[in-house]
Amino acid sequence: MATEALGWWGVPLGILAGTLRGSVPFLLVSLGECLTEKSGKINLGLEGTLLMGAMSAYAVSYLSSGIVGPTLAPWLGVLTAGAAGMGLGTIHGWLAQQPRVNDVAVGIAMIIFGGGLANFLGKPFIQPQAPQLPTLAAGGWSSLSQVQSALQISPLFLLGVAIVPLMSWFFKSTRWGLYVRAVGDSPDAALAMGISIFWVRMASIVAGSFLAGIGGASLSLFYPGVWTERISSGQGLMAVALVIFARWQPWQCLWASLLFGGAQALGPAFQSVGIDSYYYLFNAAPYILTLLIMVATCSPKRTLTGAPGALGQSD
C-alpha cells in the first residue's frame, strides 16, 4: 500500500474524483429531464424514479448474480432500472396529459409514490452486497494510488457523456427531434403538422424516465454503491432543477452536472486538509454557486432562451 498523504493536492484531486463519480446521476437525470421538458412537460417525479432505479438495479444485480454470474448481473440491474423508470414514466406521461391535470403536481405525487414503492420493495436488499458495475481504470499511468482511484470511470458516465452530443444532434438535425421541439414549443403548430402530441410527449417522458432509472442504477451499482432509502437525498430533484439552469441544452446539462458532482466533494475534501469550520456552508456551496451563476447570467429583458414554449402552460 503506497499511500502517501497528498496534503493540499488532495483538494483538487478530490474534486476531480468527485466530479467523475458524483456527477453520473445528475447527468443522466438531467439529460432525461431535458428530453422530457423539450416536449413541453415537466417530470418532477424523477426523484422517485431515481430511487426506484437504484433499488431495482441493486435488487436485480443481487438476485441474478447467482444465475447469470457477477459480470452480467449488474448490467441486468441497469436494464431493469431503466425498465422500472419507463414504468413510472408511463404513469406520469399518461396522468400528466389528462385535461386539467397539472404536471408539477403529478410529479410531486410520483416522487412520493416511486420513493414509497422503492423503499417498500427494497427492504430485503439493504443489507446484502450486490455485484457492482465494472469501472475503467483511466489512471493506470500514475503510480499514485489516489490518482488511480480518482480516475476510476464508470461506463455509465461514458454513456451519459456519449448521449450529450447525440441528444444535441437529435434535437437539431433529426425529424423526430423536430417533432419533440415542435410539440414542446407550439403544440398547435405540431397538431397542424399532424403530429400526435400525446404520443410524442409520452415517448419523451418514458425515454427520459429510462435515463433517470439508469441514473439510479449508477447510485446503487457504482457510487456510492449501496442501496439505502436515503441514497438519493434530493439529487433527483436537484437534477431536474439543473435543466432549467442548463437552459434545456444537453451540453450545458453536462457542465452543470460536472459542477454539481464536483461541488459535493468540497466539504469533505476541505475538512480532510484541516479546514474544518463552516462545513455546513461548504456543503451548501453547490446551491449557492448555482444561484449566483443564475443571478449573473439571467436577464429580465429576454425570456429564457431555449425554454420550450408550452412548458408550464396548461392545456
Partner: peptide, 27 residues
Amino acid sequence: QVIFTGDWSVPVKEAEATNSMADQGIE
C-alpha cells in the same frame, strides 16, 4: 482525522469523506 458529514444518513457525503481520507493516506 475527523470529517463531519453533517447528517446521520447521507451516503454520498460519507463515501466522499472516506475517499478524501484515503487520499490523505489514512490507514
